[in-house]
């Protein structure tokens, strides 16, 4: 009985200390931020209730987009190799095959209308900086035309699949133009020096970000980088919830590759140890019965 009391005192002291240096300190150093908003409701330039016309969208895309963007899924190849594209634009323009599926509809429409404000990068592309975002604003288009483009992009987009391969595709489309993932052998399609000149910062390798930032942080950060890191050069990418979850899943598959093995082995080791503890207890009882 007395030993239980001692144990209780120790558990209480250790518990208080633990609470102070882990959950509490974490809460002080990383205050909660607004929850992720996958509707991007701050973007209101385009009336997204309009129903887009796929046929018309196709015409508009071919007239306006494929001069720079490839759409491999419908046979519009890349205009020039990555290195040249990076040198001309600062960053390799994305292939639009999956755009209709990885980006939120409202975000995509507003992005076409005005890319810089959708990305929340006004602070990077100020008139004083002398830098301009390579993609022009299509704010001269009507909302209907923009929604036609969105409808077309959605119509050519592949449907969602699961599994590491598809998580990887989503990661490459959403992040891979700027970020490398060395532990998966992925290198950013835009050469690192070019991005640095273009964005003013080198995008980090993401191999261990699932560990260094954690899922919780990434979930808010990817949705809106400026909230957690005001002034960062990382654009808001406008991923919808499903695509963002796939990206994070991929980061975990690469950054914490042994998670499944760890968790299943953990159970066995605990069971084994419990058996040891019980046997040790029985042995102790037997031995001490002779001396007490």
């Amino acid at each position: 009985m007395k030993e239980f009391k001692i144990l209780a005192v120790i558990v209480a002291l250790v518990g208080i200390t633990y609470y102070g240096i882990e959950p509490y300190a974490h809460h002080v150093m990383h205050p909660e931020v607004a929850p992720a908003d996958f509707t991007f409701k701050d973007l209101k330039n385009v009336d997204t209730s309009l129903v887009g016309n796929v046929e018309n969208g196709k015409v508009l895309v071919e007239a306006n987009c494929i001069a720079c963007h490839s759409i491999e899924s419908v046979g519009h190849p890349q205009v020039m190799p990555n290195a040249d594209a990076a040198a001309s634009y600062g960053v390799v323009p994305p292939d639009l095959s999956g755009a209709g599926w990885i980006y939120d509809k409202n975000y995509l429409a507003n992005f076409i209308y005005d890319p810089v404000s959708a990305m929340k990068l006004q602070h990077k592309f100020t008139p004083e900086s002398g830098k301009a975002f390579p993609m022009p604003s299509y704010n001269w288009m009507s909302a209907q035309e923009i929604m036609d483009i969105v409808a077309y992009l959605q119509s050519v987009a592949p449907t969602a699949k699961s599994g590491t391969e598809s998580h990887k595709k989503t990661f490459e489309a959403a992040c891979g133009r700027c970020h490398s993932m060395a532990y998966a052998g992925l290198e950013s399609t835009t050469p690192i020096d070019t991005i640095k000149t273009y964005m003013g910062a080198t995008p980090p390798d993401l191999s261990q970000y699932i560990k260094s930032r954690g899922e919780h942080y990434l979930y808010s950060f990817i949705n809106d980088p400026q909230v957690l890191l005001p002034g960062t050069a990382m654009p808001r990418t406008g991923l919808n919830k499903k695509a963002q979850e796939e990206v994070i899943a991929y980061m975990e598959e690469i950054g914490d590759r042994k998670k499944a093995e760890r968790e299943s082995l953990g159970i066995w080791v605990m069971i084994y140890t419990l058996i040891f503890a019980i046997l040790a207890y029985l042995w102790k009882r037997k031995i001490w019965s002779e001396v007490h």
Partner: peptide, 25 residues
């Protein structure tokens, strides 16, 4: 041995349960 250590093994067993919980989870 064996009396003192038998008690230590018993404490060790439950301590290890805690330890491996931390290691894995």
């Amino acid at each position: 041995w064996p009396v003192f250590l038998s008690k230590d093994f018993f404490v060790l067993g439950f301590f290890m349960l805690f330890f491996f919980y931390l290691v894995f989870f």
